[in-house]
């Protein structure tokens, strides 16, 4: 009897440490949780025939040649604030494209593998050294990563009728195309 009384008293003493008694309501505790969402603007490619590099501060670069026939897939991730939308633009960065040769780019709509507010394709453009918007009104979204995710890109090359498309120099044409994802106006 005496022993069990002592051990019970001891249990109560042990289980009532001074540090816990100070709060006004002992049975409630509040914890602050801080959550942050930085903006995100990432663009990349997927496909079998992509010569790709990321250029810090500029975007993603693809080297295209007349032999590219396969579709390239443009993948992106975007987190915007409530007042903004992102835009993807494209321009020729460098290369040895003969002045008389035209490269057209067709941008398809997003195929729906991701979620969120996807951008809208502007359709077909002629590539130039000046940046042109190809996907606009991009909200907070992601396309998914890989082929058959995001927007399909297809290139078409147009030659003057007098042009000798069998000339060996055509194989040496390489054009660097840069895609950038930026905050829309």
């Amino acid at each position: 009897m005496k022993l069990s009384y002592c051990s019970l008293l001891l249990l109560v003493i042990i289980s009532s440490p001074g540090g816990l008694v100070s709060a006004q309501k002992d049975n409630v505790v509040e914890t602050p949780v801080k959550v942050s969402i930085p903006s995100v603007s990432l663009v990349g490619f997927a496909g079998s025939n992509t010569h790709l590099t990321n250029i810090a501060g500029k975007g993603a670069e693809q080297i295209i040649t007349p032999s590219i026939r396969d579709t390239t897939w443009l993948n992106y991730s975007s987190i915007v604030d409530e007042k903004s939308a992102n835009v993807i633009s494209v321009n020729i960065n460098s290369g040895n494209l003969p002045a008389e040769v035209v490269v057209k780019l067709n941008v398809g709509e997003d195929v729906g593998a991701g979620a969120g507010t996807m951008g809208k394709s502007t359709g077909k453009i002629t590539l130039s050294e000046y940046p042109q918007a190809i996907i606009t009104d991009i909200g907070s979204c992601y396309t998914g990563q890989g082929t058959k995710k995001g927007h399909p890109l297809t290139y078409s090359w147009e030659w003057p009728s007098t042009y000798d498309v069998n000339h060996p120099s055509i194989d040496n044409i390489e054009v660097s195309v840069i895609y950038t994802l930026t905050a829309g106006k």
């Binding site: 009532s16 049975n27 509040e30 914890t31 602050p32 949780v33 995100v40 987190i79």
Partner: peptide, 27 residues
């Protein structure tokens, strides 16, 4: 009748950031 509760972190906050570093992937 006793019932007391506390945490090791309070009042310093639990902090978390939602992001991604891969183009095409969700946060």
């Amino acid at each position: 009748d006793k019932c007391m509760l506390s945490t090791n972190t309070s009042p310093s906050p639990v902090s978390m950031t939602l992001s991604t570093s891969v183009a095409g992937s969700a946060v």
